[in-house]
Simulated scan of single mutants.
Amino acid sequence: MLVLSQGCDASVLLDDSEVFASEKNSGPNSNSIRGFEVIDEIKSKLEEACPETVSCADILALAARGSTILSGGPSWELPLGRRDATQASLGG
């Protein structure tokens, strides 16, 4: 079980490290989560325009809402301001 520290809402974007196994490569996410390169491209362009302003966590939340709306689902107000952490812990 991955237990997050420092409020990392975008933990699925973290890669494996010597300290923890990431969600990105975990069994339940295998072949079900795709498009990491799209998030990387969006983040890169946002960083060029406004450095250290938009988190990957907000990008994921906005992408989830946008894809829901585009597929005919509901829209909702989305508070922004999430922060990305750089660490996670396997501790429980």
Score class of each variant (00 low, 15 high):
residue 2 L to G: 02
residue 2 L to N: 06
residue 2 L to K: 03
residue 3 V to Y: 12
residue 4 L to D: 12
residue 4 L to G: 05
residue 5 S to V: 15
residue 6 Q to F: 07
residue 8 C to M: 01
residue 10 A to I: 04
residue 10 A to H: 01
residue 11 S to K: 12
residue 12 V to A: 08
residue 13 L to Y: 06
residue 15 D to H: 14
residue 15 D to F: 06
residue 16 D to G: 02
residue 17 S to N: 07
residue 18 E to V: 05
residue 18 E to H: 05
residue 20 F to M: 00
residue 20 F to K: 00
residue 23 E to G: 04
residue 23 E to Q: 14
residue 23 E to V: 04
residue 23 E to I: 08
residue 24 K to R: 15
residue 24 K to C: 03
residue 25 N to I: 03
residue 26 S to R: 12
residue 26 S to F: 01
residue 27 G to E: 09
residue 30 S to C: 10
residue 30 S to R: 11
residue 31 N to V: 02
residue 31 N to G: 11
residue 32 S to K: 13
residue 33 I to C: 02
residue 34 R to K: 15
residue 34 R to Q: 06
residue 34 R to I: 13
residue 35 G to Y: 03
residue 36 F to S: 02
residue 36 F to C: 04
residue 36 F to N: 00
residue 37 E to H: 15
residue 37 E to M: 07
residue 38 V to D: 09
residue 40 D to Y: 02
residue 40 D to K: 09
residue 40 D to T: 01
residue 41 E to W: 08
residue 42 I to N: 03
residue 43 K to P: 00
residue 43 K to I: 05
residue 43 K to E: 14
residue 43 K to D: 13
residue 43 K to F: 13
residue 44 S to P: 00
residue 46 L to T: 00
residue 47 E to Y: 01
residue 49 A to R: 12
residue 49 A to Y: 08
residue 50 C to F: 10
residue 52 E to Q: 13
residue 55 S to L: 01
residue 55 S to G: 03
residue 56 C to G: 11
residue 57 A to P: 00
residue 57 A to Q: 05
residue 59 I to N: 03
residue 60 L to F: 03
residue 62 L to F: 02
residue 62 L to Q: 11
residue 63 A to L: 15
residue 63 A to F: 10
residue 64 A to C: 11
residue 66 G to I: 05
residue 67 S to A: 15
residue 68 T to E: 13
residue 70 L to K: 14
residue 71 S to I: 00
residue 71 S to Y: 04
residue 72 G to T: 07
residue 72 G to H: 06
residue 73 G to P: 09
residue 73 G to I: 02
residue 74 P to M: 07
residue 76 W to G: 01
residue 77 E to H: 13
residue 78 L to P: 02
residue 78 L to M: 15
residue 78 L to N: 05
residue 80 L to Y: 07
residue 83 R to L: 11
residue 84 D to F: 00
residue 86 T to W: 00
residue 88 A to Y: 01
residue 90 L to C: 05
residue 90 L to P: 11
residue 92 G to D: 13
